[in-house]
Nucleic acid binder design. Structure first.
Lengths: 194, 194
DNA sequence: CTGATGTTAGTACCAAGTGCTAATAGCGGG
DNA sequence: CCCGCTATTAGCACTTGGTACTAACATCAG
């Protein structure tokens, strides 16, 4: 099934994109040409060798991993915090956070930033969200920086409850408001921080 | 700065964990021992060679990519959907979704599942969340499967608005309730039911 | 002094290439 | 039918980052 050069090169591109882990040897079998032809094709198409391809994928993952680690704790970056009072975090909206269609940030990212900030501002290691009311006032698009300000507006330590209000803004314009009823998981016997 | 074997091997492990892209050559310089010693150390510690390490990272990323693609669209997996009426999705809570401390799922994951399901059930490509009220009734822990059921309870096509109620349960027990006011971004020009 | 442990050196070999030269095949036009 | 062109194939030297193995030390303890 020898196909003409151009067609083969297109197929080659696709094959390697789908599976970067394939060797020239394997490709030569698949396309029924010599290894050298595969190499020439790769050169013409500027496709790097197997090891470089793999490395590229790995580096990408590695960088992503570093990026997603802090995300696990708090979505966005906390730039100011006063425990039990208020906190501020920023979150840069990237292409992966938006609907492809219209570039508008998906609601759960704004929620995640606000909610994790609400958790962080509580002077508790184990705060849980009980209830919450959200308003998505304006769409946020990729490239924008969301500044979320959380404020503890009402605290009932005896009931292990607190209310946190989070207001998020882009360029001073409010885009999101959320109120969170939080539950403190630790009893108010002090000093059992860990 | 030659340290005893044991100490060096521990440091070696850490170094490679932090940066899997380092060669034996570079390590031998860093620890001021011969390349052979590094190789012996790696063998004792069962650490694979550079290329295998890189490949491992790459494969991981590659698999994750496949996994995270649908996640970008809908958090959880849609198992049933009737456009403009109702939809069901399941979401398996994994270790990365919970607080390390108490294994309880972070709120924004439950929200994300519910919110993206609310978006999906709308018979619109471009639905946005306007307002939302949430109740986190019971904590969800790693290993549990959350089944979210979304229902369009009120639709005002003329105002481009709709209300969606999502109830999430683990083993038939309700753990989360959310109501979402959604905005349809497209004009209701045609009756394109599907 | 002997032995065990740890370290270093050196060789052969491997995979998956690059870079280069040279031969050959196939085909189209004049 | 031959000329020239492109495409393909072959072969060789060399590269990286190793494995596998052997052999030579070094150091210290008993």
């Amino acid at each position: 099934m020898r196909r003409p050069k151009k067609e083969r090169q297109q197929a080659l591109k696709d094959t390697i994109r789908d599976n970067p882990f394939v060797t020239d040897e394997e490709l030569s079998v698949e396309f029924d040409v010599s290894v050298q032809t595969i190499r020439l094709d790769r050169m013409e198409l500027a496709i790097p060798e197997l090891r470089e391809r793999i490395k590229h994928v790995a580096v990408k993952t590695f960088e992503d991993e570093v990026k997603s680690l802090p995300i696990d704790e708090v979505i966005g970056e906390i730039i100011d915090i006063e425990l039990d009072k208020k906190a501020i975090s920023i979150f840069d909206v990237k292409p992966e956070h938006v609907f492809q269609r219209n570039q508008i940030a998906r609601g759960h990212h704004l929620f995640a930033q606000a909610n994790s900030l609400a958790v962080a501002v509580m002077n508790e290691e184990l705060a849980l969200t009980v209830k919450s009311e959200l308003q998505f006032l304006r769409p946020v698009t990729a490239g924008q920086r969301v500044v979320a300000k959380a404020e503890v507006i009402d605290s009932h330590p005896e009931k292990n409850r607190a209310f946190v209000k989070v207001v998020s803004a882009v360029d001073q314009v409010t885009v999101f408001i959320g109120t969170f009823e939080m539950y403190r998981m630790t009893e108010q016997s002090e000093g059992d921080e860990k």
